[in-house]
Design a protein around this nucleic acid. Structure first.
Length: 672
RNA sequence: GCGCUCGUAGUUCAAUGGAUAGAACGUUGGAUUGCGGAUCCAAAAGUUGGGGGUUCAAGUCCCUCCGGGCGCACCA
């Protein structure tokens, strides 16, 4: 990554020495899609050419540049060009006896300018020729850089030790703290497929920032407070009444806790709660009065009613049991679990309300407490007209709490796109209350998993349980292991472990490989797919690489800990072949893939990278022998250097896959 | 109605404003007395929803139309 900065500085200097001023931040480098164009490419000559041309007739330039200023407002980069005239001091300052044959004024095309810049860059970069092999100016005006093989090899060597590489990667985020709010299933509702995205993407973002050296704090903001409990309480009361069961707390006080409503409560499962919730909504459709009843029950709960609290608690218990099962299956562990109720029981919402009052922002509207947001039609509602709280208030309380507890540089919400408006309101309000600056708040809104017709609705009961999918995935993976040719020598427990890692890894990867914001149409086959661009493909590549490394030790009877000591030094006797080179050219971009994934909150970028690497490795593997053959006569053996070198390539690939998959929350297997 | 968002091969998706729009699945054909065939290679497949504009350069930015999705205070 340092190389990129260095190149940019060189280009900047080169351009300046031609008497053209551009900001360093306006120099852009990219990796050309086609490897024949080198490793880095700069397009600076093309926009500059236009500017340089226009400067020739001053009037023209004025018109053009003002006209463009208008257009460019929306663009991030704006070129400011101050071209030196023929006899400015600028020119003489840089002009030496070595001045290029082509003059700036003679330039006819972007390509000419690119050539001119290239000449200047060559002068600068020649001094550090241990990095760049070739610089070319090509039509229509790109300047392409090809890295030196030696440099690529040095980069690859860094990857031979995972620990060292991790330390290096963790430099950029030192001292920064991020809180990420993810998963957040709702109590008394099943852990549906909708929460898969928040959980896997959120965990990946968490891991990405951690890899970059941030202090990361994961907080599972459970939906364990709110009017939905009013609905459940109502429905449970109704059921208990129809069973002629007296309310629980009274019985308990009377020492007869084993019967009645309490027993009914004890007998409930999460599936029952789900059913009750759906039943409520069915009834409420016919009789809107029920919504009112539910609101009353929630208000009772919020005011501390014992009976209501008992039912609530039971619901929380039941749900947590289910959630923990799913998290265990997923292999996800979230640092904290401050649910919404935490902010009720600890008085955080009152604190927020008093802040609002102090700022003079509290308004009453149709009996409810709201804040008016400048530029927004709708005010943000904090408290309902009946005095019960709303989730916006709880989210504000959450921000206040998180700032006080961790003082993070960034708070990320991995929550579905259907909450966009909500978070817009939350963020705006939090800034108005001076809790933090707007730039510290990010809503990473993932698209919905939905049917062809529309989104899943818990209210109608048409959810798909995540647990069911995960179990199915493990089952399918199990079948694959049985069929696999290497599966034969494995024990039953080994097979089970593999099936689990492959099944769960497959589901997770499937969710991560797509850009987060787009909707996903639910497709049973797709979510369980295990070939092509999939988790198991990457896992397979890793296992294959490990297998080669393992064998290399057996044949050479090396001790295991020497594995990571394979190195490139003085090992290359021949020219690199195309596949070796393409691996080397992929290796050094790993850190960049991690950084970009994190910055853009897009794990799919890392997914792409890892898949690309795997494809390249598999092709390399197919075309070239890594280990020398024992049976071959001494003289015919691969030269030792080649084997060492290829083993190092294999080791680097395996290490990247292990780190990368680790970040994605996917297990790697030594055998599968 | 208003706001946000998406529309790319048969399907599912990529593509920091750059070069010939790339993958995977599916289809067709091929590869192994060698390190794991859960692999690899090749081929066919595209008017990037339509139209206009900005730009040296547009799938990408702007406008407009069409089509899907999400949201629009007393659920979360």
């Amino acid at each position: 990554m340092e190389i990129e900065q260095e190149l940019k500085r060189a280009i900047h200097k080169a351009v300046a020495s031609l008497g053209i001023e551009v900001g360093l931040d306006q120099i852009k480098l990219e990796h050309p899609a086609d490897a024949k164009f080198g490793d880095y490419s700069a397009n600076i000559a093309m926009p500059l050419f236009v500017k340089v041309k226009n400067q020739k007739s001053p009037n023209d330039f004025l018109q053009k540049s003002t006209g463009q200023a208008k257009v460019k407002v929306t663009r991030p980069q704006r070129l400011s060009v101050a071209m030196a005239g023929a006899a400015t001091p600028n020119q003489s300052e840089h002009g030496s006896g070595q001045e290029s044959k082509i003059k700036l004024s003679d330039i006819k095309s972007p390509l000419d300018l690119a050539k001119l810049i290239k000449e200047e860059i060559s002068k600068i970069i020649n001094l550090k020729s241990s990095i760049i092999n070739r610089i070319e100016a090509v039509s229509p005006g790109f300047i392409n850089f090809t890295l030196l093989e030696d440099y690529l090899i040095r980069q690859a060597e860094e990857l031979l030790s995972i620990d060292k590489f991790r330390q290096r990667m963790a430099k950029s985020g030192k001292g920064k703290t991020m809180v990420i709010d993810y998963s957040a299933p709702n109590i008394a509702k099943p852990f549906g497929i909708g929460h898969l995205r928040s959980t896997t993407i959120g965990q990946a973002i968490y891991n990405l920032y951690q890899a970059l050296g941030w202090k990361t704090i994961g907080d599972n903001h459970l939906g364990d407070w709110g009017t939905q409990f009013g609905k459940l309480i109502y429905q449970i009361e109704l059921k208990a009444k129809s069973l002629k069961l007296p309310p629980a707390p009274r019985l308990r006080r009377a020492g007869k806790a084993k019967t009645g409503e309490l027993e009914f409560l004890q007998s409930l499962t999460i599936a029952d709660l789900e059913k009750l919730y759906v039943e409520f909504h069915k009834e409420a459709e016919k009789n809107p009065q029920l919504e009112e009843e539910a609101r009353k029950r929630f208000k009772k709960l919020e005011q501390g009613d014992k009976e209501a609290k008992e039912i609530w608690q039971k619901c929380v218990e039941l749900s947590l049991k289910e959630f923990n099962r799913v998290y265990r299956l997923l292999g996800v562990k979230i640092d904290y679990r401050y649910g919404e109720s935490f902010y009720h029981f600890n008085g955080w919402m009152e604190k927020v309300l008093s802040d609002v009052k102090k700022k003079g922002l509290l308004k009453k509207s149709r009996g409810a407490l709201v804040i008016e947001l400048p530029g927004e039609e709708m005010p943000a509602m904090l408290v309902k007209s009946d005095g019960a709280t709303l989730y916006l208030l709880r989210d504000l309380a959450t921000i206040k709490f998180r700032m006080k507890t961790w003082n993070p540089d960034l708070i990320v919400y991995e929550v579905g796109a259907d909450h966009k408006l909500h978070f817009k309101q939350v963020f705006k309000t939090a800034v108005m209350l001076d809790y933090l600056e707007a730039k510290k708040l990010v809503h990473l809104a993932h698209g919905m998993i939905r049917w062809k017709r529309g989104k899943f609705s818990t209210r109608k009961g048409d959810t798909i349980h995540l647990e069911e999918i995960l179990k199915d995935a493990v089952k399918r993976a199990g079948k694959l292991v049985d069929q696999s040719r290497t599966g034969k020598g494995l024990t039953k427990t080994e097979k089970e472990k593999i099936a689990r890692a492959v099944g769960i890894g497959g589901v997770k990867f499937n969710d991560l490989k797509q850009e987060p914001e787009r909707d996903i149409i639910f497709d049973w086959e797709r979510i369980l797919s295990m070939d092509g661009y999939s988790g198991p493909y990457l896992q397979y590549t890793y296992a294959r690489a490990q297998s080669v490394l393992y064998k290399s030790e057996i044949t050479k009877s090396q001790i295991p800990k020497s594995k990571s000591q394979i190195n490139f030094k003085n090992q290359i006797s021949n020219d690199l072949n195309q596949e070796e080179l393409s691996l080397l050219r992929t290796f050094y971009r790993f850190g960049e893939a991690v950084t970009v994934s994190a910055e853009q909150f897009s794990p799919h970028i890392l997914c792409r990278y890892l898949f690309d690497l795997s494809q390249k490795f598999n092709l390399f593997y197919q075309k070239h022998r890594i280990l020398s053959l024992k049976s071959e006569a001494e003289g015919q053996k691969q030269e030792g250097g080649t084997e060492q070198f290829r083993l190092a390539l294999t080791q680097a690939t395996a290490n990247i896959l292990r780190m990368g998959l680790g970040i994605l929350g996917i297990e790697t297997l030594e055998k599968m």
